[in-house]
Simulated assay, not measured.
Amino acid sequence: MHLLQGAGLPGPTAYTEHLRVPDLSVGTYVLAVGDVDGQQPHTEDEIYVVLRGRARLWTPGLTVDVTAGSVAFVPALEPHRFVDITQDLHVLVVFGPAERSRGGEAG
């Protein structure tokens, strides 16, 4: 068992990894009001669990409002980013398999 210390709290960078094993990784992504989310598509599947805050999650085919309790799945290679951040956003991120285990970010 692993207890993830600090998950959901701001880290030294926007994304802080808390756990990595071959089949998944878990981290916290924190964006302040007005921040620009510059992430690129990942080569791994991703689940976002919004812990607090308010924003919109954009993909080419759909944009949805997200708030505390929202859970979103983004398949590998799908362009996506958080936009219109109106309350500081704290997101738990789960990658399967572990982030960058398939060669990093796409494109």
Rank of each mutant, 00 (worst) to 15 (best):
64 V>E: 08
93 V>C: 14
101 S>E: 01
59 T>K: 11
46 E>S: 06
54 R>F: 00
19 L>M: 06
61 G>A: 14
7 A>I: 14
100 R>M: 13
55 A>M: 01
82 F>V: 00
98 A>D: 13
16 T>Q: 08
42 H>P: 07
4 L>K: 10
32 A>G: 13
76 A>L: 02
84 D>W: 13
100 R>H: 15
47 I>D: 12
91 V>L: 15
85 I>W: 03
80 H>Q: 09
57 L>P: 03
60 P>D: 05
86 T>E: 11
13 T>C: 10
69 G>K: 05
44 E>G: 02
4 L>D: 00
52 R>E: 14
1 M>W: 11
40 Q>K: 14
72 A>Y: 06
45 D>N: 13
41 P>F: 09
69 G>N: 01
2 H>F: 15
28 T>C: 03
7 A>Y: 08
65 D>S: 10
74 V>Y: 03
58 W>F: 09
102 R>P: 02
81 R>A: 11
22 P>W: 01
34 G>Y: 05
100 R>Y: 12
95 F>L: 06
75 P>L: 04
91 V>P: 04
26 V>H: 00
58 W>E: 12
39 Q>M: 10
9 L>E: 15
32 A>T: 12
14 A>L: 09
49 V>C: 11
1 M>A: 10
16 T>W: 00
65 D>C: 04
37 D>A: 07
27 G>M: 01
9 L>N: 10
96 G>T: 14
5 Q>T: 15
69 G>Y: 05
82 F>H: 14
6 G>P: 09
31 L>S: 00
78 E>Q: 15
53 G>E: 02
8 G>S: 05
21 V>T: 12
97 P>M: 13
99 E>T: 14
36 V>D: 14
55 A>R: 00
30 V>Y: 05
87 Q>S: 13
90 H>I: 10
44 E>A: 05
51 L>Y: 05
5 Q>L: 13
58 W>C: 06
10 P>E: 06
40 Q>W: 12
59 T>N: 09
82 F>N: 00
62 L>E: 15
80 H>V: 02
27 G>R: 02
25 S>N: 04
55 A>C: 06
71 V>A: 15
68 A>V: 06
14 A>M: 15
23 D>Y: 12
42 H>N: 08
100 R>A: 12
84 D>Q: 12
40 Q>N: 11
77 L>P: 01
51 L>T: 09
90 H>D: 10
34 G>I: 03
89 L>Q: 05
20 R>Q: 07
63 T>K: 01
45 D>Q: 07
1 M>Q: 11
107 G>I: 12
52 R>G: 09
80 H>Y: 07
69 G>R: 00
12 P>F: 08
63 T>A: 08
47 I>F: 15
75 P>T: 09
25 S>F: 00
94 V>P: 01
105 E>D: 12
26 V>T: 02
22 P>L: 01
12 P>Y: 07
14 A>I: 10
80 H>L: 03
58 W>Q: 06
69 G>D: 02
75 P>E: 06
98 A>W: 09
